[in-house]
Design a protein around this nucleic acid. Structure first.
Length: 596
RNA sequence: UGCCUGGUGGUGUAAUGGUAGCACAGCAGAUUCUGACUCUGCUUGUCUAGGUUCGAGUCCUAGCCGGGCAGCCA
């Protein structure tokens, strides 16, 4: 990959969008010493394909500008969060950016916290220098590591008369807020003295009050047309331990308060989020300005999140699919989670290519599934080794080949390679072909095997169907054919043309494997728009078969990507495949323009 | 009937006052030892109405339509 090529794959042009335009302008005017972005997931679920878009945007901007992108857990709500998710998210991010933007990944030394350090004569907090993300002593950033500075900033806000402790109940707070088209009402606790606020806030931290009894609120404007400016809550009381911060706290900051200050502490320059946070930007700016902080302030930019046809990207709904056992787990290969896509066999560069190709705008769009499928096929077409496999076998007996004889054939590993390599496969008396590749009563324009018809066995020779043998129940037990060995490569009739070429495996030299065939999880393009998305789950999203594979597939490794010729792209299941007992997942089918 | 934001072929996206382009999808054909890939051709678009301008997808005004926002979630 050339140094100036900033795209997710070596061949595509460097991406350009309205956010990158803004960053480019800031770089041109040297507004910041270094471009620093962040990816701030809440550890309350697994990352999905929508997050992949955000990851590629944030890390992409970092790598294109010799900057950095911090992985920061936005873990301010201990009630919903868990270390299980911290681990899965870290794994997923690293997997997605590996070999592309891993050198931009901002991590810190394990266990470190910001230290109080004056800056330009003002009190401020400094983070330790970033650590090598590949070191075992490094970890991601955590908003919960900033609880102490955040608390001190809140005290400062109180001292400046810009925050107060409010005793309204949750219900009252709601009523006082008013409605979008109706101004709110000021809290009766709004004008407490600074001394009283300081005392109360300190006692909130000390644990003197029960959950929900008091909050810390910003003093802004209860009549603002933007409801997020109507004295928003900054802190709430929660007497629970925190998965990362431990047991030291019973007050926890809310998103709006924690996020902008976390960005500030980390020296983030461009804080990129999705459209629904647009109305929060005024609050983001208000908090930072109210504190009169000494260093350059971060700014928030919003883009439209990814919507993909036939898929859901709501953590709540994805969790429901797991809980209802509609899928086996968060990383079920049918899930749009990053771990599910990985398990399905989608290569990280293909995922990056896709989420980059849809672009970055403020337009709420719905991307067709075909776009994703095209990118995956395109990538795999170049990357996958061709192999022969039969999913639903029908036995063929080549009556003119003696039992025990092996006819050596040469198969191409990948015709897309500039210098394709080959391997040997053996044609034997008995072989399996795909049941779809035979029709006793063929439809019009059927190119495959039919009574009295000829077809080529790929890499081998042309065969002619002589006889259909059925068992007592009328089911086909075998097809007796004659092989024309003179049509093999290198033989006199090698160039003989037949309409159909089909795949096959030797019945005596093959290996068996479980193969999982996946289809889309939902039957409608917009499952999220359904009143009950569980009612549009595709009942046929998974089919399991015992397939016959060419022997070389017994040596498949997790990193391998295969095209089972004429069927699709397949990869070993990293979770359930065992040595000697392989399990393959179908990543995606080949395009099929043959009318079914 | 509040605030924010957006509207370019079927879908997604580009054009930053100067030839509406690209990708995917679709259709037709060529090629093919994968009905894949590849190649060729075709269909289809600036929300509406005014205005500014030599010239408007782009700027202005009004309207229409869509999305988001009223958690002690993020």
């Amino acid at each position: 990959m050339s140094a100036e090529n900033t795209s997710p794959s070596p061949s595509a042009p460097a991406p350009s969008d309205f956010i990158r335009d803004i960053v480019a302008q800031h770089v041109a005017e040297q507004r910041y010493a270094k471009i620093v972005t962040r990816f701030p997931p809440e550890p309350n679920g697994y990352l999905h394909i929508g997050h992949a878009k955000s990851i590629c945007l944030n890390f992409g901007i970092a790598r294109e500008n010799n900057g950095r992108c911090n992985l920061r857990f936005d873990d301010t709500n201990p009630v919903k969060e868990d270390v299980e998710y911290v681990d899965s998210i870290t794994t997923d991010v690293k997997w997605l950016i590996d070999g592309w933007a891993d050198h931009c990944l901002g991590f810190k030394a394990k266990g470190t916290h910001p230290a109080a350090t004056p800056f330009n004569g003002k009190p401020d907090f400094y983070l330790p220098p970033v650590a090598d993300a590949k070191s075992p002593d490094a970890e991601a950033f955590f908003a919960s590591d900033y609880f102490e500075p955040l608390y001190l900033y809140a005290v400062e806000l109180i001292k400046r008369g810009k925050a107060y402790v409010c005793d309204l109940t949750p219900k009252e707070t709601d009523e006082y807020r008013g409605a979008p088209d109706k101004p709110g009402k000021e809290s009766p606790y709004r004008n407490r003295s600074i001394a009283e606020n300081l005392d109360l806030f300190q006692r909130m931290r000390a644990g003197e009050f029960p959950d929900g009894a008091r909050t810390l609120r910003a003093k802004i404007d209860m009549a603002s047309p933007n409801v997020w400016l109507r004295d928003p809550l900054l802190y709430r009381i929660r007497h629970v331990d925190h998965h990362h911060a431990g047991s030291g706290w019973c007050i926890y900051p809310l998103y709006d308060y924690a996020h902008c200050l976390s960005d500030y502490l980390e020296g983030i320059t461009h804080s990129i989020c999705t459209l629904e946070f647009d109305v929060h930007r005024a609050l983001y700016d208000w908090i930072l300005e109210a504190l009169d902080l000494p260093r350059p302030l971060p700014h928030q930019y919003e883009f439209a999140k990814l919507n993909l046809a036939y898929t859901l990207v709501s953590k709540r709904k994805l969790l429901k699919l797991v809980e209802e056992k509609i899928v086996t787990a968060w990383d079920d290969p049918r899930m749009p989670t990053i771990s599910g896509l990985r398990r399905r066999g989608i290569p990280a560069p293909a995922l990056r290519e896709f989420v980059t190709s849809v672009g970055v705008t403020k337009f709420d769009s719905l991307t067709e599934a075909a776009v994703f499928e095209n990118v995956v096929r395109n990538y795999l077409n170049g990357a996958a080794q061709r192999r022969l496999a039969v999913l639903k076998p029908v036995k063929i007996v080549l009556t003119n080949i003696p039992a025990g004889e092996e006819v050596a054939c040469e198969a191409v590993n990948n015709p897309q390679d500039e210098q394709p390599t080959t391997r040997r496969i053996a044609l034997t008396r008995e072989v399996f072909i795909e049941s779809d590749d035979f029709a006793e009563v063929p439809p019009p324009k059927y190119f495959r095997l039919k009574p009295g018809g000829e077809v080529r066995l790929k890499y081998a020779c042309i065969i002619k169907l002589d006889e259909i043998v059925k068992d007592a129940s009328g089911a086909i037990s075998e097809l007796r054919c004659t092989a024309d060995l003179t049509t093999r490569k290198g033989e006199p009739n090698a160039d003989k043309k037949v309409k159909g070429t089909i795949h096959w495996v030797s019945a005596t030299k093959c290996v068996e494997a479980e193969v999982r065939l996946y289809d889309r999880l939902f039957t409608v393009p917009e499952p999220a728009a359904e009143e009950d998305f569980l009612k549009v789950v595709n009942p046929k999203s998974l089919e399991v078969v015992t397939a016959k594979l060419e022997p070389s597939l017994a040596g498949a490794t997790l990193a391998d990507r295969f095209q089972f010729e004429r069927l699709g792209y397949f990869a070993l299941d990293p979770k359930e495949s065992q040595p000697g007992k392989p399990v393959f997942n179908r990543t995606i089918t080949l395009k099929d323009t043959w009318a079914k």
